[in-house]
Design a protein around this nucleic acid. Structure first.
Length: 915
DNA sequence: GACTCCCGCCAAAGC
DNA sequence: GCTTTGGCGGGAGTC
């Protein structure tokens, strides 16, 4: 509207009249219905106009004249007529708005008028999007017509249509709306959101955005990134290698664009940009993407050689536009990443987590190229694939041959598991789309844990370890029947459930060092087990595999660990606290958690299948190592396993988990050596591992129950696990993720012994790390040395930490013992693993060397519209300074700003802050 | 001064 | 030929 221009205060007012597409002026205005809100905004002072009821509200209320009654009846009988009537009223509203405006202009002087106009912020795209979204339900019923008339919306919201296009384009990219015809869109709400995100993540992975991001960051590392010259050429080359550099719009079945016009300029379309932008979040491991990086990637895909400042600026502008809409959708949140070079605007993903890799498994069973959710709704694989990537064959999802066998194995295992009495109930995502939106990772955790446990129990039997049959039985029942949600996952997902056992899971996690082939990425990480603990593990539990580490040591399992030992018998509630909170948040936000045991199971099985052999070897070695163990290091920390895909937690899962935990607790209590309990270390590192990112942590093993060990991320820590967290929690997670960013941090924490983690922390921290593969990993000494996991800080911190922190010597010992490093190799307490980015795959390259400080910016939207931030996670902090992980805490002023803790980052200090 | 991002010109595409 | 879309970048507002 014109008033909008007036707000600018620089002569923009006149510009409005010139706008060609001002529908307000073109549309015939008949009725007097007005939009209360609109009028209020526009002309609060205009009495007659200030309180007109909304048209829609008026209609039903005013049928008390013969004419109105007739209208109402007709309207009721015919949706078309009703729609027409509504349009008329909208037009009337717009007309009144204009009149009000004119009235206002007449009665106010220039300055007064300007003052009366909404401020720039009040007209932000984010706020506008909020208003827009408020008009439609998140999950509209398919029965009713959810049509959007751009003209009407523009008028009602009192903005020019151009702005509506911006919003609609982004919504379209998420398939929340679809274009029906000229000036007409259909509102789908969030029904398709989860599907879309899955598809986008998939495509993002296919496009190797992770690599691109890493490349850009790497380049920045090496030298200040300049927008021209060699760097650009280099980048162009790298992008050029990407087959999917020119990815087109990703469509969902049934959501194809109806009008060719929509595709006419899609190469630079806001829609495509939006999708790409979202992809960046979905594939990156701390799910934080700076505008700069995003812009570079987007530009790179177009023409990197043309990269110039103006183009860059334009891209940034567009990204802001997109980000504002995404922020309104609560999919992302503005943050600031502070690096050595300064503070950079960035955005952090706060939307639901998407589990692509899990999807792979699922896809295999049903379809090759479609995301699970999509498949569910679509019978035809071909159709799905076609729709997803109508224009590009390259973008079709192709399963790597090596995965096929694995998938089959997994599927078989899954069937077995599912048939098992204790197997978690699987909810069909198809039944509830909304559910699908939930982080599936969490839901998968239980299944995965179950898988692993089951598999391990079998293995244990086969191996006939020294374990007594009783023990094995105990463990197996617990494990097998009830998938153990990693404490992390479980907690985050289930709030209300008072299942104490959050701790218990750890016990289950009697994890022996294992390396899990990671998800799709294939990243694996190794876990170092304390000899003594390892012993326990091997003998004790059949489960060699990973356990969901509800309380990953690294991440902040501390409370868990200690609790595990201590509370296993006594207090379960405490544990729960940690677990519960996350859950609450999770459930609250996304709705019913999705149970995807299948996915988790798949993950587990996949890893198992690949690594069974390794596990056996591992177990043996572990047992041997037990004797030589570090002397009963007091650390009870559990190894963290990370798998981003395991995050989704479902109600069923929780129930099972609870049951399991209870059982475990009982078992553990009986088994637990009280004295050892005392030794439990309180360390918490919050490590977020992500689905595809292999993370290695060094974690002190839990005594009896949990083989303590060091988890060594072979590649990179991922943060994808936050899936299950609510936005707020996710915010916290983000920070965590940052932390995770540098795998070293996690290690550090675990090693050093850490600060007790608060419940909130646990939430953030609790990221089920499940995929552990047998340690057979093939890390070359060099790679290990390079591994970021063990950072100086880590080691240092460990030194400083008073708690039972394994010393570097211990670490070396363990590593050597396990075979991760040659006997001659020493991991310096300090730098040893610092710079390593052991990525088996390019994608897995970790940015671990960055120190980040996360600051979340408040959305541009008015505070009232912003969700209150309750981030209170304090991250672990190592005693030593530099390696301290940044903590996320709510500032007294309410600006949840992540304290600038330092995430241990070898070379670069990266801070992410929330404003 | 840098960051944000609103605003609206204007061209492409559609009807 | 008019309307709808939407790329684009100037420049205002904010920090």
């Amino acid at each position: 509207m014109q008033q909008a221009g007036g707000e600018m205060g620089t002569g923009d007012k006149e510009n409005h009249s010139s706008e060609p597409y001002r529908s307000v002026l073109k549309t015939p205005l008949k009725q007097a219905a007005t939009s209360r809100s609109t009028l209020t905004e526009i002309q609060p002072d205009c009495q007659p106009l200030t309180t007109p009821p909304k048209p829609k509200e008026i209609l039903p209320a005013d049928p008390w004249t013969p004419t109105s009654n007739l209208k109402m009846l007709i309207s009721a009988a015919s949706p078309e007529i009703r729609s027409r009537e509504q349009r008329r009223e909208l037009s009337n509203n717009a007309r009144e708005v204009l009149q009000a405006k004119h009235c206002l202009q007449e009665h106010l002087s220039g300055d007064e008028y300007e003052k009366s106009q909404p401020s720039r912020k009040e007209k932000s795209l984010g706020l506008l999007c909020h208003k827009f979204l408020a008009r439609y339900p998140d999950y509209p019923s398919t029965a009713e017509n959810n049509y959007i008339c751009l003209d009407e919306v523009a008028e009602e919201l009192n903005v020019e249509r151009r702005r509506i296009y911006d919003i609609v384009n982004v919504l379209e990219s998420l398939h929340m709306v679809s274009r029906l015809a000229k000036n007409r869109y259909a509102w789908h709400g969030r029904h398709n959101l989860s599907k879309t995100l899955q598809a986008l993540k998939k495509v993002g992975e296919e496009n190797k955005y992770t690599q691109q991001i890493q490349m850009i960051k790497k380049r920045e590392y090496e030298h200040e990134f300049d927008l021209d010259g060699e760097s650009n050429e280099e980048m162009a080359r790298s992008f050029g290698s990407n087959e999917h550099s020119e990815m087109s719009f990703v469509e969902l079945p049934g959501m194809e664009f109806r009008a060719a016009s929509v595709n006419s300029r899609k190469d630079k379309s806001l829609r495509v940009m939006s999708q790409k932008f979202v992809m960046l979040f979905l594939v990156s491991t701390p799910q934080i993407v700076s505008l700069e990086v995003a812009a570079k990637i987007l530009i790179g895909e177009d023409q990197l050689e043309d990269l110039d400042k103006s183009k860059f600026k334009t891209k940034i502008r567009r990204l802001y536009d997109i980000a504002n809409v995404l922020s309104s959708l609560e999919l992302i949140k503005k943050v600031h990443v502070t690096e050595e070079r300064g503070r950079k605007p960035a955005f952090k993903w706060t939307g639901p987590d998407v589990l692509p890799s899990v999807q792979d498994t699922k896809l295999e069973t049903t379809s090759m190229s479609c995301p699970p959710s999509i498949l569910e709704s679509i019978p035809s694989k071909e159709q799905c694939s076609k729709n997803l990537f109508p224009s590009r064959g390259k973008q079709n999802f192709t399963r790597h041959p090596s995965l096929i066998k694995l998938v089959k194995t997994i599927e078989n295992d899954r069937r077995k598991i599912q048939s098992a009495p204790t197997s978690p109930v699987k909810m069909s995502a198809s039944t509830d789309q909304n559910l699908s939106a939930l982080p599936s990772k969490m839901a998968q955790v239980p299944a995965i844990a179950k898988h692993q446990l089951e598999g391990q129990s079998k293995k244990a039997k086969e191996l006939k370890l020294s374990r007594s049959a009783l023990e094995s039985n105990q463990s197996s029942p617990e494990v097998v029947p009830k998938p153990e949600p990693p404490c992390v996952a479980a907690p985050s997902q289930q709030p209300a459930l008072a299942q104490p056992p959050a701790v218990c899971p750890p016990s289950h996690s009697s994890v022996s060092p294992v390396i899990l082939p990671h998800t799709p990425a294939g990243v694996s990480y190794a876990i170092y087990l304390h000899p003594s603990q390892a012993h326990t593990v091997t003998t004790y539990s059949p489960s060699f595999m990973l356990q969901p580490l509800p309380c990953a040591n690294v991440t902040g399992i501390k409370s868990i660990n200690s609790k595990v030992l201590n509370k296993t018998t006594t207090e379960e509630g405490d544990n729960q606290v940690t677990t519960d909170d996350p859950t609450k948040s999770l459930t609250a936000k996304e709705g019913p958690p999705i149970k995807s045991e299948t996915s988790s199971q798949r993950c587990l099985k996949r890893s198992q299948a690949l690594q069974e052999n390794n596990l056996i070897k591992k177990c043996r070695s572990d047992e041997e190592s037990l004797d030589t163990s570090l002397g009963g290091s007091t650390k009870n920390e559990r190894p963290l396993s990370s798998s981003s895909q395991i995050n989704h937690e479902t109600d069923n899962f929780q129930e099972e988990r609870q049951n399991k935990t209870e059982t475990l607790d009982q078992n553990m209590a009986s088994r637990c050596d009280q004295s050892k309990r005392d030794h439990v270390l309180e360390d918490e590192d919050k490590i977020k591992t992500k689905q595809d990112i292999p993370v290695a942590f060094a974690v002190p093993a839990h005594e009896t129950f949990f083989p303590s060990g060091y988890l060594i991320p072979l590649t990179q820590c991922t943060h994808g696990n936050k899936a299950g967290f609510s936005n707020k929690e996710k915010a916290g997670l983000c920070s965590l993720q940052h932390t995770t960013y540098s795998s070293p941090v996690a290690v550090d924490l675990s090693v050093a012994g850490v600060i007790p983690v608060t419940a909130s922390e646990l939430k953030a921290v609790n990221i089920p790390a499940f995929q552990i593969t047998p340690l057979n990993i093939m890390l070359s000494p060099t790679s290990i040395a390079a591994a970021p996991v063990l950072s100086n800080s880590c080691l240092n911190s460990s030194n400083t930490s008073s708690a039972q922190n394994p010393s570097s010597s211990v670490l070396n010992f363990t590593l050597q013992h396990i075979g991760l490093i040659p006997a001659g190799v020493q991991v310096p307490a300090n730098p040893v693993l610092q710079n390593m980015s052991v990525s088996l795959q390019p994608e897995n390259v970790s940015y671990s060397s960055e120190n980040m400080n996360l600051q979340e910016d408040k959305p541009s939207v008015p505070k009232e519209l912003q969700e209150p931030q309750t981030v209170t996670e304090n991250f672990f902090r190592t005693p030593g300074g530099p390696n301290t992980v940044s903590s996320l805490s709510a500032n007294s002023d309410g600006t949840d700003r992540i304290s600038q803790g330092t995430l241990y980052i070898p070379q670069r200090k990266l801070e992410v802050s929330e404003d």
